[in-house]
Each structure stands twice: as structure tokens, then as C-alpha cells.
């Protein structure tokens, strides 16, 4: 009988009730990458780095386990300090301290890394993609200027759907 109850509860554990904002952020990380071209040397893995307090749990690992971005398998790394960043394609900035965020952004610009953050003003501070939520919907701000500085090319379809663009050289 106990086994039956456990089985029942296990079935229910698979049901819904996820954090939609977190799910969308996780999905946007990979989907946005499909509209971005990097100029740094090609690696055999597509690397996504989360710096700061990881808000995703193991969601990213599960979501990108069998997926390919830019034809490459995806590797997720979780770090807390700037010195740990190393070579990465996307840097998801989950820091709260503005000074730390600023240092990370500067590092990313120098190293041609696509930065994604959810903090208010993230794009104006030099982050490339700001993904926040306004009235229960995703709100995308792209700093095209920083992307150009970083030698990162953002394709027109992505620029076309962003709610706000901080323009660079046309």
C-alpha cells in the first residue's frame, strides 16, 4: 500500500506549478543566442555562465542537456567571482551589488561576452541584454552600442522585437 501512495505522490510531483518568470529567463538565454554572432575563436562547446546567486537551480542543466546552440553542445557553469569567468559565450549576471555588476560588464565587453541581466538599468550600465518583466510580460532591452563595442553582432530579427534599443553606430 505504501508503494501505491508513494507512486501516486510521485506522479503528482511531476505536475506543473513552475516559476514562469524563471522558466522564461532560462529559455531566453538559449533562444537569444540563436540571433547573436560572436567574433571570438570557435570552441567546441557553447558555454553559458551564471555569476552570482544562481536563480535557476538545475533548470538550465535539464533544459540544455540535449540541446545544441550554434551547432555545439551546451555547458553550464556556475560561479560567484569575476576571476572565475574564463572563456564563455553568455554571462548571465545574477549579482545584486552594482559595483560588482559594473566590473563584470567591463570584463565581458573586453572579452566579447554576451551579458544578460534582469536588474533595472542593466542595459544602460553596459549590459547587452536586459530581460525584466513589466505587467506580467517579458520586457527586452538591448544595448546595441555595447554589443558593437564587444564585437558581438545582433541580428535584425532580435533587434526588431526588443521593446527598447540603446542604439550604436548604424
Amino acid at each position: 500500500m505504501k508503494k501505491i501512495i508513494v507512486a501516486f505522490l510521485s506522479l503528482n510531483l511531476l505536475l506543473l506549478a513552475s516559476n514562469q518568470e524563471r522558466d522564461l529567463q532560462a529559455v531566453f538565454i538559449g533562444r537569444l543566442a540563436q540571433f547573436v554572432q560572436w567574433n571570438h575563436p570557435k570552441e567546441h562547446l557553447f558555454r553559458i555562465t551564471i555569476i552570482g546567486n544562481n536563480p535557476f537551480g538545475d533548470l538550465l542543466n535539464r533544459l540544455y542537456k540535449k540541446k545544441k546552440i550554434d551547432g555545439k553542445s551546451v555547458e553550464i557553469q556556475y560561479i560567484t567571482r569575476l576571476e572565475e569567468i574564463g572563456q564563455t559565450d553568455i554571462l548571465f549576471v545574477a549579482l545584486e551589488n552594482q559595483q560588482e555588476i559594473q566590473k563584470v560588464i567591463l570584463y565581458a565587453i573586453k572579452n566579447s561576452i554576451l551579458t544578460i541581466g534582469t536588474q533595472r538599468g542593466f542595459a544602460q550600465r553596459g549590459g547587452i541584454v536586459q530581460l525584466s518583466f513589466v505587467m506580467q510580460k517579458p520586457h527586452l532591452v538591448i544595448n546595441h552600442k555595447t554589443a558593437q563595442y564587444s564585437n558581438i553582432k545582433i541580428q535584425a530579427p532580435l533587434l526588431a522585437i526588443a521593446q527598447e534599443i540603446i542604439k550604436g553606430d548604424e
Binding site: L24, K137, I161
Partner: peptide, 9 residues
Amino acid sequence: LEELLATET
């Protein structure tokens, strides 16, 4: 992407 941006959370 358009559908994602229209998703209500």
C-alpha cells in the same frame, strides 16, 4: 521570440 515576449507570467 514574439510568442515568448507575449507570454503572461
